[in-house]
């Protein structure tokens, strides 16, 4: 049944941006959420082994990456405002900044993986590192996708496209702020 112009706005109309992006955001949160719950459940079977493995992680680097991502999110949110105001040059500059910080995140993550490899730690080392590589690797893949998406919406003169790209980027941010404490901080 189609909605008439004088009908009150529905629940979906309340959502900022594209509904399909919110479907994707909720789906991704469910996938990562299930992974983190599985990680914490497996931790119950070997708390000492998980604590010993976690000691190999570089918390300061991961904390720095949190600051990098939330700062990148700020630039993406500003880019949406710039796009809505028709300030194309500012929008592109802000999205370029957000993308650059996304690359910084990936470089720091790559250094972390290289450090683990130099210690002979891989995905099959133990259960902790299987989850570590799967969850952080899947997240890093989303960062790559987000950088590409921000690049695409930067060249489009459509504020809705910018809002959709930024929403994906904020989802990547949101997943990280939940993943970081579970993998790196909780002992």
């Amino acid at each position: 049944m189609s909605q008439r112009p004088d009908d009150p706005p529905g629940l979906l109309d309340e959502l900022p941006g594209e509904v399909m992006m919110w479907v994707l955001i909720i789906s991704e949160l469910l996938v990562f959420g299930a992974g983190l719950v599985a990680f914490m459940a497996m931790r119950l079977t070997d708390p000492a082994g998980f604590a010993e493995a976690q000691a190999h992680l570089h918390r300061a680097g991961a904390a720095l990456n949190t600051v990098v991502l939330v700062t990148s999110g700020l630039l993406a949110a500003w880019a949406v405002h710039a796009a809505e105001a028709g300030r194309e040059a500012r929008k592109r500059a802000l999205l370029a900044g957000a993308m650059a910080l996304g690359v910084v995140f990936l470089v720091i993550k790559g250094m972390e993986y290289a450090d683990k490899a130099s210690q002979g730690i891989g995905i099959e080392t133990n259960t902790f590192f299987t989850f570590y590589y799967l969850l952080t690797g899947f997240h890093a893949a989303h960062v790559v996708a987000g950088v590409v998406l921000l690049g695409l919406v930067a060249v489009l003169r459509d504020p809705r496209a910018t809002e959709t790209g930024a929403a994906f980027w904020h989802m990547v941010d949101l997943v990280w702020v939940l993943l970081f404490p579970v993998i790196y901080l909780i002992r």
């Binding site: 900022p16 700020l74 904020h170 989802m171 941010d173 939940l178």
Partner: peptide
């Protein structure tokens, strides 16, 4: 405490970055 801080960060991203502050039901 650590998870409380994580919730606060998620709240800030949802409300301010993703714009849910203007969508009370969601």
């Amino acid at each position: 405490v650590i998870l409380g801080l994580a919730f606060a960060k998620a709240w800030l991203i949802l409300h301010h970055y993703l714009g849910l502050a203007g969508a009370p039901s969601w």
